[in-house]
Nucleic acid binder design. Structure first.
Length: 829
RNA sequence: GCGAGAGUGGUGAAAUUGGUAGACACGCUAGAUUUAGGAUCUAGUGCCGUUGCGGCGUAAGGGUUCAAGUCCCUUCUCUCGCACCA
């Protein structure tokens, strides 16, 4: 007997046809997602449903930190890519809360950055003003998606109370000797008018604007990330990240082992070092190459060669990075006129200058072994330099042989393989003082200053007497002054340089006149440590309280785009390790588990872009279909980690599903014991949804919920014992609908405070299974048998089956294989 | 070129340890319903054929196995990252 009845519009309008079949569909069947969603968003906000505190009674293993990569608050608002990762982490957070975990799930804004500044240049509007406006826009948009953030922990990197601590970390880096000034040629984006880190240059172009990057020599602040190269590499082992991201970081760090070898000039005047990973091929070195920027170039150039070398250097300098690294291009170079002595055999070999050798790697000079290095081989062929085979296995006149083999023409290395001779030659070089074992990295120090306005000021005062002096901590935050023009000067000075009253100050050390550093920090600075500030966002005396850090760290799940593989994720790891070394944090690594969501492409699998006009605006989707549909669709599209194409038809399908769920919830509730087959379906559904949600396999969890609804939809009433658990299962996915249906059942909110349903393994097992009968591996019949039927019985059933008999008749049975609850395969000849 | 990952219907995709390929959804087809607002309900839908049956089928080719989307080898294609790193 129904104990409670839901008065619903659908019921009032339900139709009973001539056969007495009633149809619970009607004009009103579209569920009122707009009302429901608004209602529950306000409820969560007012009740602070998702606020968390550091409750010491919660055991450590029940504390969970689920983090999203925070967005840059652009004036464009959210795009459909944002809700993908945010929904995934939100479902996981809500799910884990219901499973008894205390979940920290915060959100904030990476609010320093170029777009606001560029907008300021165009319109004169202060970046601070636009940024605050955009943050409000983002918060409103994010709230319409029903995410369970603890909004009391929100941070924005551009606010002084936040960047005070970004500056504080810079001072610590400076104290540790990890921040230094240098004037060196760096990547310069002529469009953004600022220097860039190596990580920000993609294929010779600015990662942000796509302009071709050139070289410019300006004074820079640089962070010694290379000092942490080994630890950044080794500690990747500790992390639960995908292999592809780990390998990108490994490649980026680019550790290689080899030797530094000293070469003397033939006239004995000078000695210089080269780095090689193949010291075993020293006997095959037939020439040397200096990079055009190498300090020795001038000295080794003979008078006769001077004009040619000069011309070459000028040409090399004119080339952009893009041209210099273009592999399709022929190798170029010029002979200096001088010779070096090969330390292993005393032979004189010519010294060339060529731009295929980079000044920024190793010592900027190489020994060229054309027989066993493809680049050297191409150069030798072009300039007709000798090619000597020192390792057998290929034909060095046809191409460089880089494989392993036995050494020849190498005196004491002859007959040894690659590995052994590398060891032997290094020992030999070290004993003679001619060289030493060496390690090199592709990773370069981090060019940290930007010649722009809208970033954290670097808290340094330049004093003629004392040099660069850090501001005392009490003077932080050092805030940005108002400026008249935001325009970058392009001279290597930021717009701050024009504000005399800000620039001119006193030296904190000697009290004499000083000038403030006018460069600002890159956008990555703020995002290097924001996950720590969430733990204690209002702390005025420290970055975050160590007890709170210990309570939550490390981040248990970090969800975001793969585009940050070697930028944010490498920089943040670096800072975290520095903070670890000075005792500010207690973990070696910040982000234990990382999941990268795939990109959402436009319809048809092409990239979403304004120019193609295929950009989907989340606001429109939420208005027309509701946030729950948006959330569920993005999770149903496919696996979280892969790219997938948007389909509004697909979205409508998921919306239809939620509509069906709603219509079920309109049916009368009965408290009777549900039939067993429904109970079994429920328990299977609980199991599948639980396991899949835990593994972030949301698409298959949703498919199971659809199967459940398709079955249950046949009934004219709903069994409370089935429906309550189902509403709980769907609630992390469609939280507004979940809350609404929960109270509709007569319960009190919030459903997120209820314990996640449990399944009984017994009820998830089928009593009857379909066993496939095969002959020679082909399915010839199917029979339904009780689960657990013994193999012998299966075989007997198969052999006696008449359809099988048709296939085995007259043939010799060679073998019968039976797999319990699966199949029988009869092999005949 | 090097590194990583991926190729399954018309589409997005499912598929413990190798054990019914294509769950779920979109689209499509047919039918039902005077059907307000991206309707709903029912049935069908991998391809081919002589359609109450059979053949073929997970990028291509080969192999291991009673049995391969899954394991091994070769080739091709695509995506991402790096790109003269000595």
């Amino acid at each position: 007997m129904p104990r409670t009845r839901n008065l619903s519009s659908s019921e009032l309008l339900s139709v009973v046809d001539a056969n007495g079949m009633s149809e619970y569909h009607s004009a009103m069947s579209k569920y009122p997602f707009n009302e429901i969603e608004k209602k529950w968003q306000e409820y969560w906000d007012e009740q602070k449903t998702f606020k968390v505190t550091e409750d010491p009674s919660v055991p450590e293993e029940k504390r969970l930190y689920v983090l999203d990569m925070f967005p840059y608050p652009s004036s464009q608002g959210l795009h459909v890519g944002h809700p993908e990762g945010y929904t995934a982490s939100d479902i996981y957070s809500r799910f884990m809360r219901m499973r008894g975990y205390k979940v920290l799930h915060p959100m904030g804004f990476d609010s320093f950055g170029l777009p606001a500044e560029n907008y300021a240049i165009k319109t004169g509007t202060q970046p601070r003003v636009t940024t605050e406006e955009n943050i409000n826009l983002f918060i409103n948009q994010i709230k319409t998606l029903g995410f369970s953030y603890d909004w009391d922990r929100q941070v924005s990197t551009h606010r002084p109370e936040y960047f005070k601590w970004t500056q504080w970390i810079f001072l610590k880096l400076f104290e540790q000797g990890l921040a230094y000034e240098d004037e060196a040629p760096i990547n310069w984006c002529p469009s953004c008018k600022t220097g860039l880190a190596n990580e920000e240059v993609k294929e010779g172009r600015c990662d942000r604007c796509g302009a071709e990057v050139n070289r410019k020599s300006i004074r820079q602040w640089i962070l010694k990330i290379t000092e942490y190269a080994d630890r950044l590499l080794e500690d990747l082992e500790l992390l639960d990240w995908t292999e592809s991201i780990k390998s990108m970081q490994r490649n980026w760090i680019g550790r290689s082992e080899g030797a530094d070898v000293k070469f003397k000039l033939a006239d004995g005047s000078e000695e210089f070092e080269v780095y090689t990973t193949r010291p075993d091929t020293l006997f095959g070195a037939t020439y040397m190459v200096l990079s055009p920027e190498h300090p020795l170039v001038e000295q080794v150039t003979t008078e006769a060669r001077c004009a040619d070398v000069q011309t070459y250097l000028e040409e090399a300098q004119k080339k952009s990075d893009l041209e210099r690294t273009d592999l399709a291009k022929d190798k170029t170079g010029v002979f200096t006129g001088s010779y070096a002595i090969n330390p292993v055999n005393g032979k004189e070999i010519p010294i060339w200058v060529a731009d295929y050798v980079l000044i920024s790697y190793g010592s900027g000079a190489i020994m060229a072994v054309p027989g066993h290095d493809q680049r050297d081989w191409e150069f030798a062929k072009k300039f007709d330099l000798p090619i000597i085979e020192v390792l057998q296995g290929g034909d060095v006149q046809k191409e460089a042989f880089i494989g392993d083999g036995l050494h020849v023409n190498s005196e004491f290395l002859d007959g040894l393989n690659k590995e052994d001779s590398i060891e032997k030659i290094i020992t030999w070089l070290e004993s003679k003082g001619l060289g030493k074992r060496a390690v090199n990295y592709k990773l370069r120090d981090w060019i940290f200053s930007r010649q722009r306005y809208w970033g954290e000021p670097i808290p340094i005062v330049h004093c003629d007497e004392c040099g660069p002096i850090p501001l005392p901590e009490e003077e932080l935050p050092l805030t940005l002054p108002e400026v008249e023009s935001y325009k970058p000067t392009g001279t290597g000075e930021s717009p701050l340089a024009a504000i005399d009253e800000w620039v001119n100050t006193t030296c904190p050390k000697c009290g004499g006149p000083g000038k403030r550093e006018t460069n600002t920090m890159p956008q990555w600075a703020g995002s290097c440590w924001y996950y720590l500030r969430y733990l204690d966002p209002k702390n005025e005396t420290q970055l975050a309280d160590l007890d709170k850090i210990k309570y939550w760290m490390p981040v248990d799940l970090y969800v975001g785009g793969a585009e940050h593989a070697v930028l944010h994720l490498l920089y943040a790891r670096f800072w975290h390790k520095v903070l670890y070394d000075i005792g500010v944090v207690n973990t070696k690594e910040p982000f234990q588990r990382l999941v990268n969501q795939g990109m959402i492409l436009g319809e048809g699998g092409v990239k979403m872009s304004k120019s193609l006009g295929n950009v989907i605006n989340p606001d429109d989707i939420i208005r027309d279909f509701g946030a729950d549909s948006m959330r569920m669709y993005e999770m149903f599209m496919g696996p979280l980690q892969v790219s997938k194409a948007w389909s509004t038809k697909g979205l409508a399908g998921v919306h239809r599903f939620l509509d069906r769920v709603w219509r079920v919830s309109d049916r009368p509730v009965i408290d009777e014991e549900p039939p067993k087959h429904y109970l079994q379906l429920l328990h299977k559904t609980i199991k599948k949804v639980t396991e899949d949600t835990e593994g972030l396999e949301f698409n298959t969890a949703i498919a199971q919920m659809m199967i459940f609804i398709n079955e249950i939809f046949q009934e004219k009433q709903i069994y409370r014992a089935l429906w309550e658990p189902f509403v709980q299962l769907i609630s992390p996915y469609a939280p507004h609908l979940g809350e609404e249906m929960w109270v509709k059942l007569g319960n009190t909110p919030s459903i997120s405070d209820t314990p996640w349903p449990q399944w009984e393994e017994e009820l998830t097992r089928e009593e009857e299974v379909t066993v496939v009968l095969q002959v020679n591996g082909k399915v010839r019949a199917k029979v339904n048998l009780p689960a657990g039927t013994e193999e012998e019985t299966l075989k007997k059933t198969a052999i006696e089956n008449e359809r099988i008999a048709q296939w085995t008749g007259g043939k010799q049975v060679v073998k019968v294989i039976a797999v319990k609850d699966k199949l029988v395969n009869i092999v005949v000849k």
